[in-house]
Computed example of a mutant assay.
Amino acid sequence: MTRHTASTITDDALDALYTRLDAYDHHAARECTAPGRSPEPGPGERPTCGICPRVLRADERHRYACRPCERRITEHLAQLPALVQDLHRLLIPGAQTNVRGYRARPGSEAAAPINLHVLDVITSATATLDSWLRDWHERLSWDAPAYHADPLTEAAAALRVNVPWAVEGHPAVNEFAAEINDLHRTATGLLDPAQRARRIGHCPVTVLDEHGGRHTCGATLRYVPGATTVICSWCQTTWDALDLSADLCGAA
């Protein structure tokens, strides 16, 4: 893992980074749209993860997804129930919460007695996890899931336990990962808008596969205001925020 010296990014530098990164996106964006397991590689090519462009290692080639993506899915599933529970405190427009330091956006007088967007996120979280769990049960020829008290928490736990099967046996695991990531990001952003990660471009690092082949990582990079570093979620390269600003703006 590459790591650069940390320092605090200034507001001026951050503003300059945001205004120039659109050009970089058009210049260097690397799209990843493979539905599930990548097509059979051609001569000299190596199979890649269906979620990110990471080249699969020799002991991962029977899988739809690499192990870092599997860990990220598992972590998000573990965190989702508590995040969604905290969202209940934001159902009343203008409400604030101090749970684990999260802070809601100060609200103005609302037309509705309940925050419909927050309610939609809460209900869609349960519906999404329940839908995927039912799909997995059908594929495994299991009985339909039965919940005892809290469908969201129980579905998240059941999915988390079976993620190792999904990354090896479910051809749509990339869609599942994308939906879980969206739920996690939306809930986190609602609970603390000030800490909502901002998209700042794509990872420019050249990575090597196990046979020496080179390709650009291309992962979407996100910066959390106030952070001193930016970490690529795919190749795990860590930058000082100012260094990354200079690198990306120079590529624009």
Rank of each mutant, 00 (worst) to 15 (best):
I114G: 05
A144V: 08
L91N: 10
A177C: 06
C69W: 05
A82N: 12
P151D: 02
A172Q: 12
W136T: 08
A125Q: 00
R72D: 11
I73T: 10
P47G: 03
V167H: 09
R72S: 08
D150I: 07
R46L: 15
D59C: 04
R89D: 10
P164C: 00
H170K: 08
V163W: 03
Q96T: 14
R54N: 00
I73P: 04
G169A: 13
R134E: 03
I73W: 01
N115P: 10
W165T: 08
T97H: 12
A156E: 02
I114S: 13
L159P: 07
A166D: 05
A144T: 06
Q85A: 04
V167Q: 07
R57V: 08
T126P: 00
T126Y: 00
R61S: 00
V161C: 00
H62S: 13
G169E: 14
A178G: 04
R46P: 10
Y102F: 14
I122L: 04
G169R: 15
A156I: 05
G50K: 01
R134W: 03
C69T: 03
A166R: 14
N174Q: 06
N98I: 08
G169C: 14
V173M: 04
G107S: 11
P81V: 00
A58R: 12
V55N: 08
W132N: 08
V121H: 03
G107H: 08
A125C: 02
R63M: 07
A112E: 14
R89A: 14
H62C: 06
H117P: 09
L87Y: 12
V121W: 08
Q79Y: 07
W136S: 05
V173F: 05
S141W: 03
W142A: 10
H88K: 04
W132S: 11
N98R: 13
Y102R: 14
H148Y: 13
A146E: 10
P53W: 04
L133F: 05
H117A: 11
T128S: 12
A146W: 09
N162C: 08
A111C: 05
L133I: 11
L80G: 02
V99I: 09
L80C: 02
Y102G: 02
S141E: 11
P113C: 10
P68G: 05
T48I: 14
T153S: 15
P171R: 05
A125V: 06
F176L: 15
D86S: 05
R103K: 10
W142H: 11
T153V: 11
G44E: 07
R139E: 03
A156G: 09
S131A: 15
I51H: 15
P106M: 02
R67A: 13
V121A: 02
I92E: 13
A156H: 05
S141M: 10
R89L: 12
G94L: 02
R134A: 03
L83S: 06
D135M: 10
D143F: 10
C66E: 11
G50D: 03
V161R: 11
A65M: 06
A82G: 01
P81N: 01
N162V: 07
Y147F: 15
D86G: 03
L129Q: 15
